[in-house]
Amino acid sequence: MNLRLTNKQINIIEKANPFLIVSTIVAFTFGLYFSLLQSPPDYIQGDSMRIMYIHVPSAWFALMAYTILAGSSVLWFITRNPIFSIIARSIAQIGMIFTLISLVTGSIWGKPTWGVWWVWDARLTSMLLLFFLYLAYIFLWKSITNKDLASKISAALAIVGFVNIPIIKFSVDWWNTLHQPATISKLSSPSIDISMMIPLFIMTLATFLFLVTVFFIRLRIEILDNKILRIREVK
């Protein structure tokens, strides 16, 4: 496996690390201030809707991470450039963690809103299945010892999973309308007030900065792994 990241680019990734950590912490401080203190409680849900400021960004990035995972797998198939395989692998674990966070916070938010910890709502069920798609990808990668082969195989699985997501979404939506009246599962207000947009925006930015920080660290781990592997091969 040869790497086509130049040393200069790797250097930038390394140098960016402290800067990213600091800006993540600053963004989260502002985000927490706005989401817990500066924003008004919702007139229907009261303060419980403050969970939205961590739940919604996690859910967005969980979906975005899978898009990146599948997109870089496709690009890997077209260009055969190993950097795309490394990107896919680096984003997978982060995406899985954010899926888990959005499930757990959604469930905690659900208790005061719906009265139960879990509803078999279409969105929740799709997220649960997304979690297992991530899990399958990561486990498959780990269980194949020949890493060159593993990256080829797991790229194929990522694309199959991505093709399957709209089918799962469609069938789960259909199943949900069949088994449940839609009224309990829908949240009350689809339009968000501007006073809630500000904390949501800052928290999204903060979560994004965090994601980039960890993503860069994971990129460096993969690059170093490759280096170690190559040195051992030469010996």
Partner: peptide
């Protein structure tokens, strides 16, 4: 099974 069951769901 982890790979297959989500694909079976539809």
């Amino acid at each position: 099974a982890i790979i297959v069951i989500p694909l079976f769901v539809p």
